[in-house]
Design a protein around this nucleic acid. Structure first.
Lengths: 340, 340
DNA sequence: GAGGCCAGTGAAAACCTTTACATTGATCAT
DNA sequence: ATGATCAATGTAAAGGTTTTCACTGGCCTC
C-alpha cells in the first residue's frame, strides 16, 4: 500500500473522471463548478491524499509562499518572540517563514538575496537596519518590511516599539517617584531606536519642567558600556538619583558598577532599563523596565508584508507599538537624605 | 535599465549563442563542455545576472533545497543557538532553513507536513521529541533528524548533548568538593534526556562508592518543580549537602527555596544546574552548570540531515556531544560543621 | 581508407500546475 | 424556431529547468 510518488492532480482527475482543469477549479474556484462534480473531486482528493505540488504551483504563479526574515543575530533575546509573531501570522496566511542571519556581515545579507532572485521568497523582513541590496543591481525592490530598527532608506514600512513614548513613560515614572536629577545612559547617533529613547527622555523631563535636571551620556548599549558610563559620571561631582538606561544590558552594567561601589539599589539610586530581556527579572535587584511588545510587533510586521506581497498599497510608513512598563525592584523613591 | 522579469536560462543561451542545454551543462557539469563555450556562457551569465529559478529547478528535480525545522517553542532559550548551528550548516550546503513551531500542539505539527508533502522541504529537523506523522498515512518517511530530545520511534538519527556524561562530570565535581550526600532533583520518565542525566548521576556516585549517599526526587523541570522538591526534602530529616538539578530552571527553584529558608549558597549548600540558559549567570549566586554545545549540535544535526537528503545511509543512531562544565559561584566545598 | 569511438552540442520531453480559450449543451428571449 | 447567452467542462499552452537521446564531426586504429 505504499505510494512511491505522491498523487498528482492528474491522478485525482482520472479517479474523479474529469479533466485536470476541473480539479484545479474545484479547488480554487469552487463556485465555478457543478456541485455534483465538486463532490466527485473532493472524494477523489480524499482517496488519493492529494496535495498540490507547491513547486509547480509557484512556478506557474511566479510567486512563492515563503517569506524570508533576515536578522543580524538570531541569538538575540529580542529576536525569538518577534519570530513567534512573524511565524504565527505567516502560517495563518498560508506562508512559510525562512530565516537567515548575517552575523553583522553585510556580505552575508546579499547572499540571501538569491532566495528572492530565484523566486523562492515572496518578501522579506529585515531586522538589520539596512537593506542588503547590491546598489549596483537595478532590479526592483521586493516587498520588504523593517522590524526593530528603522531603515535609512525611505519607502520601506517599519514596525517597532514606540521608543519615544516608552522612554517618556519611564521618565514619568521616575519623576512620580520624586526624582529630579535623572541621567540617561546610552545615547547613540548610530542606532535610531536608541536615539528615539533619548528624545522621549528629553520630552518627559521637559514636560515636568526639569530640563536642567538631565544628564545624557553616550554609551554603546552593552553591559560594559553601561559600566563605563557610570564610572565617567562619578568623576564629576553632581550625581543623579536615577539612571534611565537605553536598554537592559546597559542597565545591568550600571547596576553592577553601582553595586561594586557599595551602593544599594533602589535605596541609593533608581535604575531603569528598556526591552525586558529574559535576564531582566533575574538581576538583583530585579530590573524595572519597558517590555517591548515583541510578538505583536512580529505579527504586525508580517501582516503588513503579506499585504504588500499580495499587492496592497503600503499604509503608513511607521507602525509603533507602545511598550508596557514592567515594575520590579530597581526603582524606588528619591532618597531623602543622601549620605554622599 | 530596469529588468521587469529576471533573466532565464534562455536569455543566457541566446546571448551566448548556444542551446539552453549547454548552458545548464556549463553550470552543473562544466567538464562536459568545451572551454571556449564555457567562457561564453560564463560571460553571458555575468551580463544577464542570471540566477536559476529555484521553483523550476525543484519541480524538475523533485526535490527542494529547504529544510524544515519544527520546534515546540522557538522562544525556548535553548533553541536559538541550535538554530544558528542549523542555519550555518544549511547555508553552507546551499539549503535554506524553514521554521515552524507547534506550541506543544501535536496538531500543529501535522500542519507543517504540507511543506514536505508539497515538496517544499527536503527534510526535517525535529525538536519535539515526537514524530508529527499521521499514523494512518502510510507514505514513507522523509529524511529526519531529531535534536535535543530523542525520538520514541526508532530509526531516526538523534543529535544531542551527552546528558549522561555531563551529569556524571557534574557529580564528580561535587564529589571532588567533598560532598558525600547529594540529591538529584528532577528525575522524569517522560523526558528521556532528563532520565539520562539521572543515570549519569547514579554512575558518578556509584563509581565513587557513594551509592547510598544519593537521594532522587522527581520533578517536572520547572522552577516551581525545583522549589517544591526542596520543600518535600525538608520534610525528611536527612538533608544532602549538594543539589544536582536536572536543569537550570529547576536549580533556580532550588536556590530560591533555599535562600528563602535563610540558607546561604554555596556555604550551606551547593547547587548545580544543567543547560546553561542565559539567565544562569544572573542568578545569585551565579549558577554552576553544564553548558550544552548547542551551536555544534545544530551543525552536526544539519550535516547528518543533508547527508540523508542526498542519499547517504544514516551513520550512527545517536551523536552525543559532551557539555562543558561552567564553573560559577553556586558550588563550594562541603560545609564542615553543619549548623543544622 | 574505412569503421568505430568520443567529445561537444542541440532538440525535445518531463516535472505539475493554472488559466486563457474553445467547446458543448441547455435555457431564454424574441 | 432560431439566435443569443450562459454555465460547465475540456484542451492546450506556459512557466524554467534538467536530462535523455540523437546528431555531428574529428580522431584513432587497423
Amino acid at each position: 500500500m505504499k505510494k512511491p510518488t505522491p498523487a498528482t492532480i492528474e491522478d485525482v482527475a482520472r479517479l474523479a473522471e474529469v479533466s485536470i482543469a476541473t480539479v484545479s477549479r474545484a479547488i480554487h474556484m469552487p463556485e465555478k463548478v457543478a456541485v455534483s462534480t465538486r463532490q466527485k473531486v473532493d472524494r477523489a482528493i480524499a482517496v488519493t491524499g492529494y496535495t498540490a505540488n507547491a513547486m509547480a504551483r509557484s512556478l506557474r504563479l511566479g510567486r512563492s509562499n515563503m517569506i524570508l526574515a533576515i536578522a543580524p543575530d538570531i541569538g538575540d533575546p529580542n529576536f525569538a518572540p518577534i519570530l513567534i509573531g512573524l511565524e504565527n501570522e505567516a502560517r495563518a496566511g498560508g506562508y512559510g517563514l525562512l530565516i537567515g542571519h548575517t552575523q553583522g556581515d553585510p556580505l552575508r545579507g546579499v547572499e540571501y538575496l538569491k532566495f528572492l532572485n530565484s523566486n523562492q521568497a515572496a518578501g522579506m523582513i529585515l531586522f538589520t537596519g539596512y537593506v542588503p541590496l547590491d546598489p549596483a543591481s537595478q532590479t526592483r525592490l521586493p516587498p520588504m518590511v523593517a522590524v526593530g530598527e528603522p531603515l535609512a532608506q525611505g519607502g520601506i514600512p517599519f514596525v517597532g516599539t514606540d521608543d519615544r513614548g516608552g522612554a517618556r513613560k519611564m521618565v514619568e515614572l521616575l519623576i512620580a517617584q520624586g526624582h529630579r536629577r535623572i541621567a540617561f545612559i546610552g545615547d547613540s547617533r548610530e542606532r535610531l531606536s536608541h536615539h528615539r529613547r533619548r528624545i522621549g527622555f528629553d520630552e518627559g523631563l521637559a514636560a515636568a519642567g526639569l530640563r536642567d535636571g538631565q544628564q545624557v551620556l553616550d554609551s554603546d548599549g552593552t553591559l560594559e558600556g553601561g559600566r563605563a558610563a557610570v564610572e565617567r559620571l562619578f568623576l564629576r561631582d553632581d550625581l543623579p538619583t536615577a539612571f534611565a538606561c537605553v536598554n537592559d544590558q546597559t542597565a545591568a552594567g550600571v547596576i553592577l558598577s553601582l553595586t561594586a561601589r557599595g551602593y544599594r539599589i533602589p535605596e541609593d539610586f533608581s535604575v531603569t532599563g528598556f526591552d525586558d530581556i529574559p535576564q531582566a527579572g533575574f538581576l538583583s535587584p530585579a530590573l524595572t523596565t519597558a517590555r517591548q511588545p515583541r510578538t505583536a510587533i512580529g505579527q504586525a510586521a508580517m501582516a503588513i508584508l503579506l499585504g504588500l506581497v499580495e499587492g496592497e498599497a503600503p499604509e503608513q510608513a511607521e507602525t509603533l507599538l507602545m511598550p508596557d512598563l514592567i515594575l520590579r525592584d530597581s526603582v524606588g523613591a528619591r532618597p531623602v537624605n543622601r549620605r554622599f
